[in-house]
């Protein structure tokens, strides 16, 4: 019996969300008196993997098939299911990325297991019961869910688990291959188009996010958001009307019908704080709101606020941030 963790790579590095999953997995393994193994797939360099030992992982299985650099669910599933069976994994940990959610649900059927996505805390384990806390109702509530199946699959919400730095030493890395055939890649993408990311910060992975709303008046003013983001090493985001009007691309739209993020710091500029917007950002650790209307609902959800004109305030912030 063991705990298996899926590790995803991006540009050769291990994703931060995968380090969180690894940390989660090794703590579950400790609680169960067993060991945590990682299965690394995709675009990650072998030399980066031994560092998973610091997360408490003892062994890393590494499938370096280059065809896996693109996410192809069928192929990934085969690799993970095989690793799970080799390691007799009873608990499988993903990060709640698009990939993790896509795999978790299919694996739950394949292994006849129980799945919880959007999980925000370590499980409470007592005897046979394994209960996790997950975010529901768009961050407005939590549910405690008992996973009753034989195999428990957990997709951990980003930025809800601290990455440990001293849980162990280095992990041993073993090549792992299941002999994938061309048929396993029948649904490979025809084309992959990556966005330009300023300074390489992906919005879903970002620790700091600077976001703009309709209060910024038009796309020609977005340099304010971008310059502040650059000075802070942040990713940029926006409200729905902003992407609806094509001031910004759709993938930047956060909220109920956009993406959900949980960075350490979310800075909202000229955004009113409609409940649908809050749904995508309310689990951010610290929220800053800049709005000229002191009655803007967003201030109720904020940790820090400035009432005033964004066109005067943001340049001051950029200056202060550059001076850090």
């Amino acid at each position: 019996m063991s705990v298996l963790v899926l590790v995803e790579g991006f540009n050769g590095e291990i994703k931060k969300s995968s380090l969180e999953a690894a940390s989660y997995g090794s703590q579950v393994a400790n609680a169960l008196g067993t060991e945590a193994t990682a299965i690394a797939i995709g675009e990650v360099q072998e030399s980066a993997l031994a560092a998973l030992g610091a997360q408490g992982i003892t062994k890393v299985l590494f499938d370096d098939d280059a065809r896996l650099h693109n996410f192809v669910a069928e192929a990934y599933l085969k690799v993970i299911a095989q690793a799970a069976s080799q390691e007799s994994a009873k608990v499988i940990i993903f990060s709640n990325t698009n990939i993790g959610a896509a795999l978790g649900s299919r694996l739950a059927v394949r292994l006849n297991g129980s799945l919880a996505t959007n999980v925000t805390a370590l499980p409470v384990i007592s005897g046979d019961s394994f209960t996790v806390r997950r975010g529901v109702f768009s961050g407005k509530a939590f549910a405690d869910v008992n996973l009753t199946g034989d195999v428990k699959i957990v997709a951990v919400k980003k930025n809800s688990i601290d990455i440990s730095s001293d849980a162990g030493g280095t992990a041993s890395v073993e090549k792992f291959s299941v002999g994938l055939s061309d048929a396993d890649f029948a649904f490979a993408p025809k084309e992959t188009v990556m966005q330009e990311t300023d300074g390489g910060v992906l919005l879903p992975e970002a620790e700091i996010v600077v976001s703009g709303g309709r209060g910024l008046k038009g796309p020609e003013n977005w340099h304010l958001v971008e310059d502040l983001a650059k000075a802070l090493g942040a990713a940029t985001a926006c409200s729905k009307p902003v992407s609806d009007q094509d001031w910004r691309p759709h993938h930047e739209h956060v909220g109920q019908t956009g993406i959900t993020i949980s960075p350490n710091l979310y800075i909202a500029i000229g955004i009113s704080g409609a409940i649908q917007h809050l749904a995508g950002v309310n689990s951010s650790k610290v929220i800053v709101v800049i709005n000229k209307d002191p009655e803007a609902p967003f201030f109720k959800a904020a940790d820090y606020g400035i009432v005033g004109d964004a066109f005067e305030i943001v340049p001051k912030l950029i200056e202060a941030a550059r001076a850090l």
Partner: peptide, 23 residues
């Protein structure tokens, strides 16, 4: 079919309040 049991629900803690900074 069901593989999970919802045991209980809770709500996140309220923010302690916003700290305002002079523009």
């Amino acid at each position: 079919g069901a593989q999970t049991e919802y045991a209980s629900f809770s709500k996140p803690e309220k923010k302690s309040g916003v700290r305002m900074i002079d523009a």
